[in-house]
Design a protein around this nucleic acid. Structure first.
Lengths: 122, 122, 122, 122
DNA sequence: GTGGTCTAGACCACT
DNA sequence: GTGGTCTAGACCACC
């Protein structure tokens, strides 16, 4: 069954932080909340947070100053690249979902424009 | 955070069945698996399944023949309406996410078109 | 002080496995001992082994078949690359050590050849 | 496995001091820090330091002036000999490792020369 | 205070 | 059996 899908928590934390960065809530060079703070806020174990940060670290999105904390990379190129990839994944997910509903590529753009026109004044 | 808020299981089951219907895995007039089969398949309690079916019944999406089982409605208008609503919700979610990423309406269609061109042969 | 140096155990496990692969004790496509077996053999915790394997996995050196085990990659190019890198690191370490002892580059090759001649028949 | 076999601390201290002498941080005739200072610096027990110094004393590498402290021997021959031995051990280890990696004597010198050329400007 | 590592033990999913 | 994830709690190193 897939109604109980199961993305690991540490991956969800990564996705969450990626979104925060893309949305500008966390900016280049900015300090993240401490591992322990994040763990409390997200009601997960410290190690689970660590694992998420560790992976983002190895991907270069974050860097660590021992005894100080974790920081968003200041490599704007990398951030742009990450942003592009994240949005592409979101797009891919969307296209895939709509495809399952029977909306093939041709009609997708049409459906989107129609939707936007219908909700022009939200 | 939202990766630890639990949507009630019976709601998840409804969502699951909605998807199955929209995707055509369950078609108009088709008999659903028995409550017990569903309970086993989804590894949940029989009562939980019952509650989900009951709600979908009251919305007219399903109807029950006593002693025979549950069936998808044959009211194509209702199904079309449901289909539309589900897709609109998906669209709304998508538009909202992209907006948070800084992509306003104008650039959204553009981004989608570009994406589709880039991935023409998946 | 550096007489008590402190390479994390999971890194040491990686190094150990790299060596095993380079030396041909673990060949391309071969199954590794199970995580639990390794943990016992190395007298460390299962999670520590997991972490080492996980990293090698993300580097492509290993791949996992769920329910079966971990296997050495069959990508010979990647293995050759890894072999080169590992040996270069070993070389760098050696050069660095000798430099600390006052042996600069010029005299290094000389010292090595002399050593090899002295121990021609070991 | 060898990353969990513990070399006695006093031996590690000896190795540490040997390195300091070979690298010239401690020179012939120079006074060593006091036993207590060393104990603090290395975060080990005073007795452990004593045992290390005692052994080096019996090997002639150090000598003790009662009430003054421990000094590095001024016997340059002995120092040269020690230096040679330490470097030979390092060389032996290196040759052995590379041999395990499949690099026999002939190709070893070649590999070293190539490495030095590649990293001419570190 | 900060992050980094390790352990022990539990539970899950795949085969 | 296999690996994958998560937790709780401990200890260390850096600042």
């Amino acid at each position: 069954m897939d109604f109980k899908d199961d993305i690991p928590i540490y991956v969800q934390i990564e996705q969450y932080l990626y979104r925060e960065i893309i949305q500008g809530n966390l900016q280049a060079g900015q300090k993240l909340p401490s591992v322990r703070q994040l763990a409390v806020k997200l009601t997960v174990n410290v190690n689970t947070v660590q694992r998420a940060l560790q992976e983002m670290n190895s991907h270069g999105i974050l860097y660590t100053k021992r005894g100080e904390g974790n920081f968003v990379t200041e490599d704007e190129t990398l951030l742009a690249q990450m942003r592009k990839q994240t949005m592409d994944e979101e797009l891919a997910q969307f296209v895939e979902n709509m495809r399952k509903y029977g909306l093939e590529r041709d009609k997708l753009v049409q459906a989107l424009t129609e939707y936007l026109e219908e909700h022009d004044n939200d």
